[in-house]
């Protein structure tokens, strides 16, 4: 880990990070507001049978309970897009982009090992992901307290929610960075990482909409982050093991492959 490289990586991202953090806070404020305004209506709608309850869920989340709403807020495509900016977009272009621009060569002309470069970028990106996730969760909790509905949440379990969410998004971030060290151009790395995320999203949504295919959710990393369950007291250690294992495997891969790759002259 190189402190200068770490700081500069964050500095490159500061404008983007600021904008995403503001959007994340806005999204986090919105979810409890929507929950307090519409949960009764949604519950009545579901009980009336007019709309199948499956269609009122997004993944494992729903607007029937505040923990469910928080899950919904964290599995919603908007939240995925916000966190994915760093976990997918920035991670997959971080090294392949430097390589394509030719700046990787200038960086690696310094006394920095490739693994140091990788680790410095990884830690900076994981911090960015953690900040965005924390902004969403923090805004949700803060707004819930402000609206007087926080008693529905076990606030003592919030660190576990953040830890589980961090593990999930770390898994996509490390995958993206592993793809980034594997290609000389950012296009294939972005495509592969985005496909990886979409597969997991598809498996999660498919299982939530179609009860016969509920088993597919077990194969989705997104399914192993259920804030509603944690906040309701159902902490599943296996979820933590799965998401952190999914985060570590690409790290091991990248630390093995990146130093061994040939970095021919950029086109």
């Amino acid at each position: 880990m190189n402190g200068r490289l770490f700081r500069q990586t964050l500095r490159w991202q500061r404008a983007r990070l600021l904008i995403v953090l503001l959007a994340a806070i806005g999204w986090g404020v919105l979810i409890p507001v929507v929950y307090t305004a519409f949960s009764d209506v949604m519950r009545d709608l579901a009980n009336s049978g007019a709309i199948p309850s499956e269609l009122l869920n997004v993944g494992s989340g729903s607007l029937f309970t505040l923990p469910g709403a928080i899950t919904l807020g964290l599995q919603h495509p908007l939240a995925i897009a916000m966190i994915g900016i760093f976990a997918v977009g920035t991670s997959s272009t971080a090294i392949a982009g430097e390589r394509a621009r030719g700046t990787l060569e200038v960086l690696l002309a310094r006394p920095i090992s490739r693994n140091t470069l990788y680790t410095s970028i990884l830690v900076a990106l994981l911090l960015a992901v953690l900040l965005v996730l924390s902004a969403i969760v923090g805004a949700m909790v803060g707004t819930s307290i402000g609206l007087g509905v926080a008693e529905e949440l076990d606030l003592g379990r919030l660190p576990l929610v953040v830890l589980n969410g961090f593990g999930l998004w770390a898994a996509f971030t490390t995958f993206g960075l592993a793809a980034s060290v594997s290609f000389d151009r950012p296009g294939p790395a972005i495509g592969l990482t985005l496909a990886w995320l979409l597969i997991h999203y598809f498996l999660e949504i498919l299982g939530s909409l179609w009860t016969d295919a509920a088993w597919t959710q077990d194969y989705s990393l997104l399914h192993h982050f259920d804030p509603g369950a944690i906040l309701a007291g159902d902490v599943r250690p296996l979820d933590f093991v799965i998401v952190f294992a999914a985060a570590i495997i690409p790290i091991v891969y990248a630390l093995f492959v990146f130093p061994r790759r040939d970095l021919a002259a950029p086109a």
């Binding site: 621009r101 030719g102 690696l108």
Partner: peptide
Amino acid sequence: VEIRRLTGYLPGGIA
């Protein structure tokens, strides 16, 4: 790494 510490490098068509 040690070689690069002691060396100055100008790549062709520097970016």
